[in-house]
Structures are given as structure tokens and as C-alpha cells.
């Protein structure tokens, strides 16, 4: 009886063949409801990607604007086979490995100290976030001035402390220039890592540390066997974010080094930009963008598989 009543109440939603027409109407209504969102996604995601596929598989050189023959995967093959891709790829891998390691180390170390009680703890937790709140381009400009070879504050400081005999051309040196990018990147993104780690650390029960202390465990042992296991899921998330972030870094390069000196800081994203806007080869630029996207997607998938939070916690 109750079942019959509920059927009556739900009406066309659960009745069979007899209610086919109203259900069709409802389906239309459902489709209409999501149509604006679909249009939005199509306009801002599907169309650009589809257009990029067209660019990558055709010859699109802007100095020859009316000639776009289909070239299949030739653009991809030419990009992959070029010396400059290999060079930019190696530079990108080195840069990404450096920033991932540095940001994680920064996050763990700083959060460890911020987690301690103290009068300045509240202030420091806010202050540490300031670099993260500054736009990347602004951060790049700040560091460009700090590292300036003629009037940079870092040179002045190091000379006044007697650590270097004369001003150093940070951006003119193919070994130091990539280092400046890593430092600026860590300054910009390290605080987020620190705050994420701090949030995790604050959830660690104090009793665990007290027990470790009572059992005679050292500070390092507490860190190794209590802090680090709790931090692992956060660190894995940061690993994904930083790997992808490092791989697609462009703005700092654009502002600070312009890919130089020579091609010492020419990352893959800069290489793609140069192919499009400097060499005016949209086809190769788009092909390169797909290669970068495929690599970052592949890396993300690997990391996501590792991210089995329950397993990690257990």
C-alpha cells in the first residue's frame, strides 16, 4: 500500500512505459539546464583544444599566412628531433627537479618551526604567506632587481660582508642564471608548501610526541617516525603541484632571464612561446604545447596513482 502511494507521489519519475513522454520532456529539460555550462566549456575548453590540434597538424607560419597544408605529425616529429628541444627538455628537467626538492624541503623545514608555540608564531604564519600573495610577474621583477649585476642588493650585501670580491653577473652566467630562477620560484611557492604542511602538522596528536619523548626517542626519531608519515599525503600533493608547476614555468623566465644567457634558462614553455611569438611558427608551437601537456598529464597520473591516502595513512 505504502509502495503504491509512493509511486503515485513520484508519478512520472518512476512509472514505466505509460509515462514515456513526460520522461522525454524531463530529459530535454535536463539537457537545456546544462546547455549554458556545456556552451561555456565548449567555447573555452573544447574549441581552443580542437583549434590547437588543427594548428599542430598543419603548417601555420605567420609570414606565409595563406598556406596551411596538412602535415600530420611532422611538426611533432621535427620538434622532438631538434637539438633545441632536447636542450630545453634537459634544462626543464633539471629546473623541475631542483624546485620540487627545494620547495618540499622549504615546506617541511619552515612548517616544522612554525608549528612550535611562540609569541611570534601567529605573526610569522601570516607573514610567510606574503610572497605567495604576490603575483608571479611582480615576484620576478623583485628578484630581477635583487640579482641585478650592477646595482642589485644581493651583490651589495655579499660584497659588504666580504663574501665576494666584486659584483657578480648573476644573469650573465649560464650556471648562476638557472639558480636565480630556482630561488625566485622557491620564494614564491615555498610558503604555500609550508602552510599546507603546517595544517597537516597541527593535526598530529601531541600524545605521540610525548610518548616518543618518554620512550627516549630523539627529535630526529620523532620527525622520522611521527611527523614524516603524517606529512606524506601532503608531500605527495605538493609533489604533483610542484612538478606540474615547475614543468610549465614561464612567467619567471619571461621576466627575469628571457631564456638566457644563451639558452641556459630556456625551459620547454619558453621554447613553445619562442616558437609561436618569435619564430611565428604556430604549428610547431602548438605541437610543443601538446608535448608539454602530455608529459605533465603523464606525470600527474603516475603521482595520482601513488596518492592512495588511506593506504598511506595506514
Amino acid at each position: 500500500m505504502a509502495r503504491a502511494n509512493s509511486r503515485q507521489r513520484l508519478g512520472p519519475l518512476i512509472l514505466g512505459r505509460a509515462t514515456a513522454r513526460p520522461r522525454g520532456r524531463l530529459q530535454w529539460y535536463a539537457y537545456l539546464s546544462i546547455l549554458p555550462a556545456l556552451c561555456f566549456v565548449a567555447l573555452f575548453a573544447v574549441y581552443p583544444v580542437a583549434f590547437s590540434v588543427r594548428l599542430a597538424t598543419h603548417r601555420y607560419v605567420l609570414t606565409d599566412p595563406h598556406n596551411h597544408p596538412f602535415e600530420g605529425l611532422r611538426n611533432v616529429a621535427e620538434v622532438l628531433g631538434s637539438y633545441y628541444f632536447r636542450r630545453a627538455g634537459l634544462t626543464t628537467l633539471t629546473f623541475t627537479a631542483s624546485v620540487v626538492a627545494s620547495v618540499l624541503a622549504f615546506g617541511v623545514t619552515v612548517s616544522h618551526y612554525l608549528n612550535r608555540p611562540g609569541r611570534l608564531a601567529g605573526f610569522l604564519r601570516v607573514a610567510i604567506l606574503l610572497p605567495w600573495a604576490i603575483p608571479v610577474v611582480m615576484a620576478g621583477i623583485i628578484w630581477k632587481w635583487i640579482f641585478n649585476g650592477n646595482y642589485g642588493v644581493l651583490n651589495a650585501l655579499l660584497v659588504s660582508l666580504g663574501l665576494i670580491p666584486s659584483y657578480v653577473s648573476w644573469f650573465g652566467n649560464p650556471i648562476l642564471a638557472p639558480l636565480t630562477l630556482v630561488i625566485a620560484h622557491v620564494w614564491k611557492w615555498g610558503p604555500l608548501a609550508a602552510i599546507m604542511c603546517l595544517a597537516t602538522l597541527q593535526a598530529v596528536p601531541r600524545d605521540l610526541y610525548e610518548s616518543a619523548h618518554i620512550d627516549g626517542g630523539s627529535g630526529w626519531a620523532a620527525f622520522r617516525y611521527i611527523t614524516l608519515p603524517f606529512l606524506r599525503p601532503t608531500l605527495l600533493i605538493l609533489l604533483i603541484l610542484e612538478t606540474v608547476g615547475g614543468f610549465v614555468t614561464f612567467d619567471l623566465v619571461y621576466v627575469m632571464t628571457g631564456g638566457g644567457p644563451g639558452d641556459a634558462t630556456s625551459l620547454l614553455s619558453w621554447f613553445a612561446y619562442a616558437e609561436i611569438f618569435r619564430f611565428l611558427d604556430l604549428g610547431k608551437g602548438a605541437a610543443l604545447a601538446f608535448i608539454i601537456a602530455a608529459v605533465t598529464l603523464g606525470l600527474s597520473l603516475v603521482y595520482v596513482r601513488l596518492l592512495r591516502l588511506e593506504a598511506l595513512y595506514s
Partner: peptide, 19 residues
């Protein structure tokens, strides 16, 4: 029409030689 692109390429290559 390709001088500007060659110029951009040349700047980086020349820097590598200077270094």
C-alpha cells in the same frame, strides 16, 4: 621575411659563443 626570426635565434647563439 625571416630576418626577424633569424635575428632572435642569432642573439642566443652568439651569447653562447661569447660565453
Amino acid at each position: 621575411p625571416w630576418f626577424a626570426q633569424w635575428d632572435v635565434f642569432a642573439r642566443a647563439e652568439l651569447q653562447k659563443a661569447y660565453l
